[in-house]
Design a binder for these strands. Structure first.
Lengths: 246, 246
DNA sequence: TTATATCCTGACATAGATGCCAGCTTGTTC
DNA sequence: GAACAAGCTGGCATCTATGTCAGGATATAA
């Protein structure tokens, strides 16, 4: 058995575990997406959505997984974009194990109309190369999600990360980079300011370099990253963590 | 007590937990960095590095945290860039709970010279907005990291994510976005191809649109993201998971 | 019907990025 | 001293992106 097939086999084991743990904790309705930017549902090797083959949903008749706005309700997705931690949904709000304002700005007022669930545990999965996925465990009625979350968040998160990582490796997407050359200090600095939208001449002023030098460093950085042009450099460097926070 | 102070207080609790669990599992030497792109060590509210105030290191005299190449040995960092899952280091190689080729291309031949540890558990923490952090638990001598990893990886990962998230919220970095407008299908498509380094006219050919239309969508996307210019749009969209995999 | 959102297209001028050429300094190693 | 790497700078021609103006098509919901 070659490696890809092995990854697919491992993936279906993780899929089963995800459903099992959902049944165990009383939140058996599950939505999963390895890449939120992908309009297609997350599917197995044969192209069958896991939502068909394994995962159950609150309303079994709805092809919820085809309309991602319904399944992975927009506020849930946006919350995933902003949080690295797992969190849960109850009483129309997001919560986690600590006091946080990260998710307080998200408008949840229309969730109940689109997702027929009162309580849910959401695990965002931020991945290399700027890929973002999520797994959501839902309950139909109130099951005391706060306690469930406190006891199982760590397991759920680790399982979610493993499933999505394995699934991605099986799909060969994102493509794994063969080499990783070291970026010099100057190259990283120029990239960071370029990502902030600065022009070459602005970067030159900021770092006290001439335009030519800024161009020199950006060119070298692009070549090390295997990128063609500034935008792709930014995309690759950001996805590998070379750029960092604003 | 205001929210930021609360986050700082919570952060030091997590810091203590990280050291405690390290002692408990027999891997008490710890290196942490919330943002790999930040040349400064991870520090508390007063600016004192956690490496000074709390964490221990194998050689207490070395100011290892000042030289990140030494502390967070280059191959460790590069492995973090490529993996969303926690993994461990033993016998000069990286391993995880499953068969994976993700980290096999990384050259580890010079690790023993720079990091005086034979075994380590590495938890990469991929965060929103393209920030990447890590926490590394090390042992001086062999302690059977394989079993430790199998039993504690989930706890370690959840703790690492919580610590780094709280620390970032305390620092107010990355800045939390107030609003998140929905990107339309076309806007997302144009962004994706722009991130791949395509020019407006190339995107037009790919999506069968005129250059004007491509420009129209990219302009709208930039305005929704609060970005000025194409490069910043890419950086923001990538960091929020709108672009996805190659 | 009237909004509203999404989507589509064109023209023009200016600023910026890119490809290509060349040369310079500084420090290290042999 | 010679050879080498890393960093730094300039000029020039061309392509690309951006700002600003204009117009219209289609569909869905109130």
């Amino acid at each position: 058995m070659d490696h890809r097939a092995q990854c697919w086999a491992q993936t279906s084991q993780f899929i089963a575990q995800v459903q099992d743990i959902g049944d165990e904790i009383g939140m058996p309705y599950i939505a999963a997406q390895a890449d939120l930017a992908d309009p297609n549902p997350m599917s197995d090797e044969a192209g069958v959505p896991y939502a068909l083959s394994t995962f159950r949903w609150i309303n079994p008749d709805s092809e919820y997984y085809r309309d991602r706005k319904l399944a992975l309700s927009e506020p849930f997705l946006n919350a995933c974009r902003l949080s690295a931690e797992p969190f849960y949904f109850r009483d129309g709000q997001f919560h986690m194990n600590r006091a946080s304002h990260l998710l307080s700005s998200i408008d949840c007022s229309h969730i109940h109309e689109s997702i027929l669930s009162s309580e849910a545990i959401i695990v965002p999965v931020h991945q290399p190369r700027s890929m973002l996925g999520t797994i959501i465990w839902c309950a139909k009625d109130a099951v005391g999600v706060e306690d469930i979350f406190r006891h199982h968040a760590a397991r759920l998160q680790y399982l979610a990360v493993q499933l999505i990582s394995t699934h991605n490796e099986a799909r060969g997407r994102p493509r794994n980079a063969p080499i990783l050359q070291r970026l010099t200090r100057r190259e990283a600095q120029c990239l960071r300011w370029a990502a902030a939208g600065k022009t070459d001449s602005e970067i030159g002023i900021i770092l006290d370099l001439s335009i030519s030098t800024v161009r020199f460093h950006l060119r070298n950085a692009a070549s090390k990253l295997g990128a063609t042009g500034r935008t792709q450099s930014i995309q690759l460097a950001a996805g590998l963590g070379f750029i960092g926070a604003v």
